[in-house]
Design a protein around this nucleic acid. Structure first.
Lengths: 170, 170
DNA sequence: GATTTTAAGTCAGTCATGTTGACATATATA
DNA sequence: TATATATGTCAACATGACTGACTTAAAATC
């Protein structure tokens, strides 16, 4: 009855799920859900003297071995200098190694060491457990919706590229 | 055929959406979707010399005026010292004001000034536009699924409290 | 009424992670 | 040969978190 601003479709149909407070709920759910999901690995990382930045790099390197530094920069959207520090830490701890590219010898291709892979797997397993529980509790249709909405939140000019990188579907 | 680890239900039914790579996709979608969603307000904030921390505080104060400092601390899950700096900035810029609680005079109740409310509205409008587009493109069922999954990602021991705070449903 | 707990604020120091800007080196490409 | 690209590095700085210690005022409890 109240608070239906910008929630009327062009046929006068009330699009209830687009009401202001429904949008606010979506925004806040994203905040709390993301926060708690991401906080999960923190304990494990802390014992190793690593942070979330290291985790992100580890994730994308583990996911696609022989990734170039530049590809990783594009994925993470941080500066070369920021990533440089992270990679130095990971190398120093023997979690990541770099080798010269064969086709392009300017490139330094990144991959996890065996030890790095162990950590990557351990962290990923924890995150998968959490998201798997949420997925299972919510059911397959909900999961499809979850993806659809998140895909729509990705910057339009990168969406197709990002979705292609993430994998089929979406 | 391949990669069905932990994706078989106890009846042997392949729960495709729980396959390892589907979970990974979910994790990555969350990363990219959240990142781009959150990055949106940054420009506007930067021109004011404010950051995301200020935005979060502003959001929850605007959303529930006369919030106590402690309530805000619980919501944001940061330390008193971190919040202190943020509130000092917001007060100094005349965006937030504090008044003594009447029932409990130890409390400092927070609310936005008129100017603070203008900024809050401006930022929220931008975020709403983005999420509204994603919601509209995805449709109501997808939105319901989006919420269901995100609610499931919230820490179990706080979930009901957080969901109650966010609002009806979910 | 005295004691303890709670709400809030503050000072000081540290850490993680991001930023700019400038510059160097090796290699690929035009 | 000249230019562009991929990477790395030095230095300085900003933001937003943290810990630990301590204060003040008010409420709650003994």
């Amino acid at each position: 009855m109240t608070d239906l601003k910008s929630a009327e479709g062009r046929h006068g149909v009330a699009l209830l799920y687009l009401r202001e407070d429904e949008l606010r709920r979506g925004i806040e759910l994203l905040f709390f859900g993301y926060r708690d999901f991401i906080a999960e690995s923190d304990g494990e990382l802390e014992t190793l003297g690593l942070g979330r930045a290291h985790h992100r790099a580890l994730h994308f390197i583990g996911r696609k071995p022989d990734l170039s530094v530049n590809e990783l920069l594009v994925i993470l959207k941080i500066t070369k200098q920021s990533l440089g520090r992270v990679l130095k830490d990971l190398s120093a701890r023997g979690l990541v190694e770099q080798k010269q590219g064969r086709r392009d010898r300017r490139q330094r291709l990144l991959r996890l060491t065996e030890e790095g892979n162990v950590l990557h797997t351990r962290l990923l397993t924890g995150q998968r457990a959490r998201i798997a529980r949420a997925f299972r509790d919510a059911g397959p249709e909900a999961v499809a919706g979850f993806r659809k909405v998140l895909a729509g939140l990705i910057s339009e000019d990168e969406r197709s590229r990002v979705l292609a990188m993430i994998g089929q579907g979406s």
